[in-house]
Design a protein around this nucleic acid. Structure first.
Lengths: 353, 353
DNA sequence: CGTCGTGGCGGAACCGGTTACGACCACGAT
DNA sequence: ATCGTGGTCGTAACCGGTTCCGCCACGACG
């Protein structure tokens, strides 16, 4: 069962075809492909011409199998549609291509089970880095299995990268690129407190994701620095969607809770907050001040523009692949990128009763 | 130079290692891997145990090389950060995983040259579909080279998919999944006209991208259906960014152009329009009506919410991979998805002077 | 009881490249 | 004239799987 009757009839041309047409051996063809060996100029010309004639491209799989390096980095995230993750993805993709790598993309849609399955797939693909973007679940069994994968990847010469999530432990071979969730939350909470706010609501995901847990901690610590303790009744549990922000704010209003400011765990949540306040005829920031987290482009389109915590999305993604790919020469494999607050127009003094 | 002294010491375990530990031949291991061949239950159990013991995963490259199918679809887009492209990407990714495929992602950042280079890379990867998302450049040479690639992909059993861009010609082997740019623009322009607007500005990219060209055509045809001709002085050329929308609107205002409505070629452009109007103390829709195109999530966060053309992003991406992967059984390889206008609160009657 | 069929398994030839090793050639040096 | 040498190129052994082919033992059947 010959796959093709004559060369160049159908299917991809192979080095064998090129060698035949150029009148050289396949090793010579391979040498001009790799460029890493002296080949006489005349010979090279013949080979190049044959390659062009047959419209030849190397088979990446064969090359990966024979050589050792795969030239692929994989990254897995929750959802491409989320502006935050998309921004990190952009950084990842950018750095990957400048390092001469292709990008494999997988999404989990919030399913921890799928995250594990996806890592397995990446292992099959011999990806030389597997980048996990976004917060992790606060689930010790999941973390254990993740640790297992980190070791497995390490054993096969690959690398796990935790991008925007905390380390799995000091002895786990993984690159960690975090950003300062706690201090960002601390700073922006202080910003509200120093504006005079004392009753601040926090709207987010509680006790499930590492990111929010850290943000709540910063929120709490900032209060304590002012000699205050946050009101547990003002900490609401929802998810990272616009609808959730909308719903939680309505809840807050319906329950008659007293508050003068809202800390939305995410800019997208803040968008929902804005809508609910608008519907209740409350102005931002005259009646209620609002802050967010992430500094996605949307923050500039809200009216008034949203004061939020800026996260270096792009740098997050870029350093993730840079550290992982060049881990032989990059001594430090755990960095914490700084955050800072972007002051805009959604915070004012609390209303005077 | 033995890669490892003893099996399972370092590096990935191979079928050979598994076979040795299970006391069977490598072909038997392969058979339990593929599942496509009778293997005695006891033997299978031994093999499975050995695989688990060694933490074995198949080498996707070796498998791709030996078998014929690669199980990878590639998609290339402008920028992951753009909400429109991200939404399509989500559809692509979703359908790809349900079809049991992995996703390779590449971005071009608006560089036609890079688009070509990227397709070459995908060809090396033996991707069984290469999905090009978003508008194409109005450049005949570029289209010719694209045609060449379409044929090359077809020859090697792969498939080019044009997702959101027009066909390259009837005899070019490519799957095309378009959406109705012209009719969408026609409908929303009619919406403005029927509200009484007669002087409508169009802000977009002119004469460069297929998408905008089609939208301008719909814009023009709608005018003609009303016995009108659009004022060329109201058609401005910029790009698809917020800043461009902002700048073009300021220009319009500064030039003292008379207009009562703005058709922004993209929702993001509309966001810039909103800002410029706000800065000029013009209200939407009392003073100026605004419409957009794409219906990205942002449209709901603008105040007032944006009337725009809804594009079935997700379906666009999903059908793209569905048609390409199952092209053996899917007879029709060129579909045009419908668009419809999403009426919200940014259109009103023109102001009475 | 001999034979044929069949289920389960091993051997070996690929898939398309890379690369170590050795052969060959033309050249200059002795 | 002979030998050494450096620069080119071909041969063949892999990389890690899949799959065709054939062997073997066993049960059923005549």
């Amino acid at each position: 069962m010959a796959r093709r009757a004559s060369p160049e009839q159908v299917g991809q041309a192979t080095v064998k075809d090129v060698a035949a047409l150029a009148g050289v051996s396949i090793s010579t063809v391979s040498r001009v492909l790799g460029g890493t060996y002296p080949v006489a100029t005349a010979t090279r010309a013949k080979v190049v011409r044959a390659m062009r004639e047959l419209d030849f491209v190397v088979n990446a799989h064969a090359r990966a199998l024979a050589g050792a390096h795969t030239k692929v980095v994989a990254f897995v995230l929750d959802d491409v549609t989320g502006p935050f993750h998309a921004a990190v993805a952009r950084g990842v993709e950018h750095q990957a291509t400048t390092e001469g790598r292709l990008c494999l993309l997988c999404t989990t849609h919030g399913d921890p089970q799928r995250e594990l399955a996806v890592i397995e797939l990446m292992r099959e693909q011999q990806a030389d880095a597997v980048i996990l973007v976004g917060g992790a679940w606060e689930d010790s069994e999941h973390q254990e299995r993740m640790t297992h994968f980190a070791r497995a990847l390490d054993r096969s010469g690959s690398r796990m990268v935790l991008c925007g999530r905390p380390t799995l432990g000091p002895d786990v071979p993984a690159t960690v690129v975090e950003y300062d969730n706690e201090n960002g939350a601390y700073a922006i909470t202080s910003h509200l407190l120093s504006a005079g706010h004392r009753r601040i609501a926090f709207l987010g995901v509680i006790d499930k994701l590492t990111t929010t847990t850290q943000r709540v901690r910063g929120f709490t610590e900032a209060h304590r620095a002012y000699g205050l303790e946050p009101d547990p009744g003002l900490i609401l549990n929802g998810d990272f969607t616009r609808a959730s922000g909308h719903q939680m704010t309505r809840q807050l209003l319906a329950d008659g809770k007293r508050f003068t400011a809202i800390f939305a765990a995410t800019d997208i949540v803040a968008a929902g907050v804005y809508q609910a306040l608008r519907e209740a005829n409350l102005r931002v920031p005259e009646d209620v001040s609002v802050v967010g987290y992430d500094d996605i482009p949307l923050a500039l389109d809200l009216v008034p523009t949203l004061t939020t915590v800026h996260v270096p999305h792009d740098e997050l993604g870029r350093t993730a692949v840079r550290l992982a790919i060049n881990r032989a020469t990059e001594p430090v494999q755990h960095v914490m990128l700084g955050t800072h607050i972007a002051v805009r127009h959604s915070v004012g003094p609390p209303p005077t009763p």
